[in-house]
Write a protein that binds this DNA or RNA. Structure first.
Length: 934
RNA sequence: GCGCGCUUAGCUCAGUGGUAGAGCGCUUGCUUCACACGCAAGAAGUCACAGGUUCGAACCCUGUAGCGCGCACCA
C-alpha cells in the first residue's frame, strides 16, 4: 500500500491516472455489453471548433458531461461519451487565412485558389486541430477517444451530402434569389440566426423630394432618359415630401416612395411620382406607392423604398413590382449604379458623402441623433448588408414532431424555461439559408450544365434529380460525365452538418450496434446561445432521419462571465487560461471551483477564488485521508455494531443523508447543490466533528490497536469509501489516488471498484435492514447533536472570557442525566479541557463562575482567582435579553387565538416546546444573575 | 413593443408558507502531534419597493422600479 505523501501534487497524480484509465480502456463504450441489466447511456459532446482552445466555458460544459458520464458508469451503465470537433466554416477559414497572410504565403485567398487554400486548411487542421481535445484530457474528460469524429470526416461528409439530396428530392430545398443577410467582411450570406441586433448610435436624416406632376411612364433608372429630364427642373413650386432615413447612401437605390394608403396626409399622392435626388446625374422620377407596412407616426410617415438593400423594402417592392437597384456590392462598396459621386466609396463613407450632396442640393432639412437596432454579423462583428443574392434555402423538416417532443416534455429542458424560448422559435420558423460563399466546408452537391438537350434521366443510384432549362444534377456522387458539369461553388452552413451530429457520429446511415444501443442519447449539455443554431435543428434532424428524438434531456449551462459580470473576451484580457489554472491548482480543484459557482440556469461569475476553494477542499480531503492511513490497521474491517459510539452512529446517519441529497441533486441536474452537500458533509460534519471526536479512540498512530480503535477505523473506512465514490464524478483524479492508496480497491471485483474507482458502485441510501444492523436510531443523532452543542457553548465561554484556544483549562459539568465516561472524554477533547470534572446536583459553583446551560446539563468554566463578576453579570444580561426576546416572539404567536385554532398540530407543538425551552433558560439565567447580585 | 428571468450579509449565491443560511471577505485568538490551502470563536441582513391573501409571507397574488436575456422591430 503506497503511503500517502504529506502534500498533494496534482500534476503527477493526474497524469498517472489518466494514463491508467486509457491503458485499461475505461472510457471505451462497448455496445455489445448493453443489456437489460446494463443499460446504455450516451452523451455526444457539443463539438468544439477545430480551431478552438479550451476556455472556461468548455471547462464548465465538459465537467458537467464528465460528471454525468462517470456517475452513469458507477451506476452500472454502459457509457458512451462521444467526442469530436466541428469544422466551423467561417471561423476556421478566417483563422487559417489570417495566419497565411501573416506568414506572407498569400495576400488574398484568390492568390492560392480554392483547392490550394482548402489543402492548406486541411494541413493546418492536421497540425493544430486536435489541441482542444488534448486539453480536455487534462481536465479529466472520460470521452471514448477511439470514436473521435470530425464533421468533415469522409463518412460524415457523405451523411451531409445525402441529407441534402434527400431534402432536395423531398422538395424541401430550393434555390432562389432572395434578400439575405450578407456579411461584407466574410463575403458570404448568413442565416438569420447569425445576425445579432445591436442598438447603434446613428443619425436620422430628413430630406425632401419634389412631387412631379407629370410622371414619366418608365420610372426605372434608365440613365439616358433621366439625364434628359435632369436639366429641365420642372415642378418648381409643386408639392414636396419630406422623408426620414438613416441610410442616405442608399437613395440612388430607391425605386419608390411609400406612404400608408390610410394616411390622410398623403393618400392623394399615391400614383404620382417624386424626383429622386441621387445620383445627381440621374435624378429619376420614382413612383409614390401606397403600402400598409408604412407607419404613420414614425419619421414623417413617408418611406423611401430600397428593394435591393432592405428586407422590408424588398417585400414592398415585390408587392408593387418595383425594380431592385443594387448600389452596394458584396464588399460593402458603392457600385456604379450609385452614381459618380458615390461609386467606389465604402458604404459608411458614402453615407457622409451623400449627406454633403443633399446639403448642396438644398434637400437636407434636418438631422437628429437617433439610436436604432442594426443587424451585425455575429462572427465578424460588422453591420450586415441586406442583399439580393442567389442562395440555397431549406424548409425545415419534421417541425411538428420537434415541437411536440419538447412541449410534451418527452425531451426535457433544464431549466425548463428554455422550452418556451424553443417553442416560440419553432412557431415562427423562416426558411434557412444554407449556402455559404466560402471554400472550407461541405460543398453543395449540385452540378450545372447548359444544354439544349432534354434533361438527363435519373442516375441509377437514384441520388440525382433533374430540372429543365439549364440542367441541374443533384447527387452524392458527381455526375458520370463530370467533366461536362460545373459544381456549385458554395459550401453548406456549418450547422447543416452539426445538426446530424447525434447520429452521423454513430455510423448512420448504416444500422450499427452503436446506433441501436446509444441512440437516442440521454443527455445533451450545451449553452442556451445555440438553442436555435444547434439544439432545435438536431431535434428536427433526429426525427427526419432517425424517426426519433436525439436526446432525452438537455441541460443548458449558464454563460461564464468575469467577476464584474462582463463576458469573457480576449480583448478584455479577462479570460484566464484553464490550463494555467490546472497547473496552479489541479484539474479537480478547477472542476470543483467551477461547479460550485454554477447555479442551475444562471450565468456564472467566475472568480479564481472559487478554484482556490476547490484546491483547499482537495487538500482537506487529502489530509483527512492521510490521517486515516497514519493510524494503520486493517483496511475496511467489518464494523461491529455493538461497539458503535454515538459519534459513529451520528456520522453514519449524516452520511446517509449526504448520499440521499447528493443523488437527488444530481438527478435533478443541480450540480452546485451536489457539491455543496458533499462539501458540508465532508468538511463540517466528518472532519470538524467526527474526525476530531474520534481522536479519543484512535489515539496516537503508534498506539496498539484495540477493538474500539479498530472499529472506529472501520467506520472511517466506511465513510471515506462512500465519500470518495460520491466525489469521484466531480473530482476524478484525487479520488482515484486515495481510493487506491487506502487499499479500498484490493478486495473488490475488478468491475466493481477493484480496477478503478470509476466502476465502483455508486452509493445508495441505506435500507431499513442496514439501519437495523447498525442500530441507528434518531435518539443517537439527538444525543450526539446535544453533545456537540455542549462543546459549542463551552467554546463560547472560552471566547467570552478570552481564553486562548491552545490553553487547556478545567471545566466542571453537572449533567442532567448520567454522563458516560467515553462521552465525557469526547467533551474533554473537543473543549480542549485539562479536566472535565463531573459533579452532582449538590455542587455549588463559586460566585460569578461563567456558566452555560446545555442540553445535557450545566457547564461551568471556573476561573480560579480570575473571576470577574461584572463580566459574567454582563454576559448573563445579554443571555437574558436574548431569551426574553425569543420568548416574547413565540408567546405573541401562541397568544393569538387564531394561531392556536388554525395552525397544524405539529407546528403548534413546536412553538410550545420552544416556549418551554426559552422560559426554562430564562429562569435559570435570571437565577444566576440574581445570585451574582445577592 | 412582446415574452422570460433576476433583485436575500461587503461580494457570489442557497433558501417555495412556520426560529434568516453557506462560501469568500472582515474581526479576534491559536504553528493543539491530518491539514495555516488550517483550527476555534465572532460581527454583519427593513430578504428591491408598495399593496393583497393568510393565524403566519423572503417564499403565494397584483402592481412599481432597477438589472439581465430572448424574440420582433419603425425607414
Amino acid at each position: 500500500m503506497p503511503e500517502i505523501a504529506a502534500t498533494y501534487t496534482p500534476a503527477s497524480v493526474e497524469a498517472k491516472w489518466y494514463a491508467y484509465w486509457l491503458e485499461h480502456e475505461c472510457f471505451t463504450a462497448r455496445p455489445e455489453r448493453v443489456s437489460a441489466m446494463r443499460p446504455g447511456y450516451s452523451i455526444v459532446i457539443p463539438p468544439p471548433n477545430v480551431t478552438g482552445v479550451l476556455t472556461l466555458g468548455h471547462v464548465l460544459n465538459n465537467t458537467i458531461q464528465d460528471i454525468l458520464a462517470r456517475r452513469a458508469r458507477m451506476m452500472g451503465k454502459e457509457v458512451l461519451w462521444l467526442p469530436g470537433t466541428d469544422h466551423a466554416g467561417i471561423a476556421t477559414q478566417n483563422v487559417v487565412e489570417k495566419s497565411l497572410r501573416k506568414s506572407g504565403e498569400m495576400k488574398h485567398r484568390d492568390d492560392l485558389g480554392r483547392e490550394a487554400l482548402v489543402a492548406k486548411i486541411w494541413e493546418w487542421k492536421e497540425k493544430y486541430g486536435g489541441i482542444i481535445l488534448q486539453q480536455l484530457r487534462a481536465l479529466g474528460a472520460s470521452c471514448d477517444w477511439s470514436r473521435t469524429r470530425f464533421t468533415m470526416d469522409p463518412e460524415y461528409s457523405r451523411c451531409v451530402q445525402s441529407v441534402f439530396v434527400d431534402l432536395y428530392k423531398k422538395g424541401m430545398i430550393y434555390r432562389g434569389k432572395r434578400m439575405v443577410n450578407w456579411c461584407p467582411a466574410a463575403l458570404t450570406a448568413l442565416s438569420d440566426e447569425e445576425v445579432t441586433m445591436k442598438p447603434t448610435n446613428g443619425t436620422l436624416y430628413y430630406f425632401k423630394v419634389e412631387v412631379i406632376p407629370d410622371p414619366d411612364p418608365d420610372p426605372s433608372s434608365d440613365s439616358e432618359g433621366s439625364r434628359a429630364r435632369a436639366g429641365s427642373r420642372s415642378g418648381v413650386g409643386g408639392e414636396w415630401l419630406t422623408i426620414a432615413t438613416t441610410r442616405p447612401e442608399t437613395i440612388p437605390g430607391d425605386s419608390a416612395v411609400a406612404v400608408n394608403p390610410k394616411d390622410a396626409r398623403y393618400a392623394h399622392l399615391i400614383g404620382k411620382h417624386v424626383r429622386r435626388p441621387l445620383p445627381r446625374e440621374n435624378q429619376a422620377p420614382i413612383p409614390i406607392v401606397g403600402d400598409d407596412a408604412v407607419v404613420f407616426d414614425f419619421g414623417t410617415g413617408v418611406l423611401k423604398v430600397t428593394p435591393a438593400h432592405d428586407k422590408a423594402d424588398f417585400e414592398i417592392g415585390q408587392r408593387h413590382g418595383l425594380p431592385a437597384i443594387e448600389v452596394i456590392d458584396a464588399r460593402g462598396t458603392m457600385s456604379t449604379a450609385a452614381g459618380a459621386d458615390l461609386a467606389g466609396l465604402d458604404r459608411f463613407d458614402a453615407r457622409t458623402k451623400a449627406v454633403e450632396i443633399l446639403k448642396e442640393l438644398g434637400a437636407l432639412e434636418k438631422e437628429e441623433p437617433y439610436q436604432n437596432n442594426v443587424g451585425y454579423s455575429e462572427r465578424a462583428d460588422v453591420p450586415i448588408e441586406p442583399r439580393l443574392s442567389e442562395q440555397w434555402f431549406l424548409k425545415y423538416p419534421s417541425q411538428q414532431d420537434a415541437r411536440n417532443v419538447v412541449a410534451s416534455s418527452e425531451t426535457r429542458f433544464f431549466p425548463d424555461r428554455w422550452s418556451k424560448v424553443y417553442d416560440h422559435w419553432m412557431g415562427n420558423l423562416q426558411d434557412w439559408c444554407i449556402s455559404r460563399q466560402l471554400w472550407w466546408g461541405h460543398r453543395v452537391p449540385v452540378w450545372y450544365r447548359n444544354t439544349d438537350a432534354s434533361p438527363s434521366q435519373l442516375s441509377e443510384s437514384g441520388t440525382a434529380c433533374v430540372i429543365g432549362a439549364g440542367e441541374i444534377y443533384v447527387g452524392i456522387e458527381p455526375p458520370p460525365d463530370a467533366e461536362n458539369w460545373t459544381q456549385d461553388p458554395d459550401v453548406l452552413d456549418t450547422w447543416f452538418s452539426s445538426w446530424l451530429w447525434p447520429f452521423a457520429t454513430m455510423g448512420w446511415p448504416e444500422n450499427t450496434d452503436t446506433l441501436n444501443q446509444f441512440y437516442p442519447t440521454n443527455d445533451l449539455v450545451t449553452g442556451p446561445d445555440i438553442i436555435f443554431f444547434w439544439v432545435a435543428r438536431m431535434i428536427m434532424a433526429g426525427y427526419e432521419w432517425m424517426g426519433e428524438k436525439p436526446f432525452m434531456n438537455v441541460y443548458f449551462t449558464g454563460i461564464i462571465r468575469d467577476k464584474q459580470g462582463r463576458k469573457m473576451s480576449k480583448s478584455l484580457g479577462n479570460s484566464p487560461d484553464p490550463l494555467d489554472l490546472i497547473a496552479n491548482y489541479g484539474a479537480d480543484a478547477l472542476r470543483l471551483g467551477v461547479m460550485r459557482s454554477a447555479p442551475l440556469g444562471a450565468d456564472i461569475l467566475f472568480d479564481e477564488k472559487n478554484v482556490e476553494l476547490g484546491r483547499n477542499f482537495c487538500t482537506k480531503l487529502w489530509n483527512a485521508t492521510r490521517f486515516r492511513q497514519m493510524h494503520g490497521g486493517e483496511t475496511e474491517a467489518e464494523i461491529d455494531p455493538a461497539l458503535l459510539t454515538s459519534d459513529d452512529k451520528w456520522i453514519l446517519m449524516r452520511l446517509d443523508v449526504a448520499v440521499r441529497e447528493t443523488s437527488l441533486a444530481l438527478h435533478g441536474y443541480n450540480f452546485t447543490e451536489a457539491t455543496q452537500v458533499l462539501y458540508r458533509f465532508f468538511w463540517n460534519e466528518y472532519c470538524d466533528w467526527y474526525l476530531e471526536a474520534s481522536k479519543v479512540r484512535v489515539g496516537n498512530p503508534a498506539d496498539a490497536p484495540d477493538a474500539r480503535k479498530a472499529n472506529t477505523l472501520a467506520v472511517m473506512d466506511f465513510v471515506l469509501g462512500h465519500t470518495l465514490r460520491l466525489l469521484h464524478p466531480m473530482l476524478p483524479f484525487i479520488t482515484e489516488e486515495l481510493w487506491q492508496s487506502l487499499g479500498y480497491a484490493t478486495d473488490l471485483p475488478a468491475d466493481q471498484g477493484g480496477l478503478t474507482i470509476m466502476t465502483a458502485r455508486w452509493p445508495t441510501a441505506m435500507t431499513h435492514n442496514e439501519r437495523e444492523h447498525f442500530c441507528l436510531d434518531e435518539s443517537d443523532e439527538r444525543y450526539a447533536n446535544a453533545k456537540y452543542e455542549v462543546v459549542n457553548l463551552g467554546r463560547g465561554l472560552r471566547r467570552d472570557f478570552n481564553i486562548a484556544s491552545n490553553k487547556r483549562v478545567r471545566f466542571v459539568f453537572r449533567p442532567a442525566t448520567e454522563l458516560p465516561e467515553h462521552e465525557a472524554a469526547v467533551l474533554r477533547l473537543l473543549l480542549n479541557a485539562e479536566t472535565l470534572d463531573v459533579v452532582g446536583a449538590d455542587w455549588i459553583a463559586p460566585k460569578g463562575t461563567p456558566t452555560a446551560l446545555t442540553p445535557l446539563g450545566e457547564l461551568y468554566l471556573p476561573l480560579e482567582g480570575l473571576i470577574d463578576v461584572e463580566a459574567e453579570r454582563a454576559r448573563l444580561s445579554k443571555e437574558i435579553a436574548k431569551a426574553e426576546d425569543e420568548l416574547g416572539k413565540v408567546r405573541a404567536k401562541l397568544a393569538d387565538e387564531n394561531f392556536a385554532a388554525k395552525v397544524p398540530a405539529k407546528v403548534l407543538e413546536e412553538h410550545r416546546q420552544r416556549e418551554t425551552a426559552w422560559s426554562e433558560k430564562l429562569a435559570q439565567f435570571q437565577k444566576m444573575h440574581d445570585a451574582l447580585s445577592g
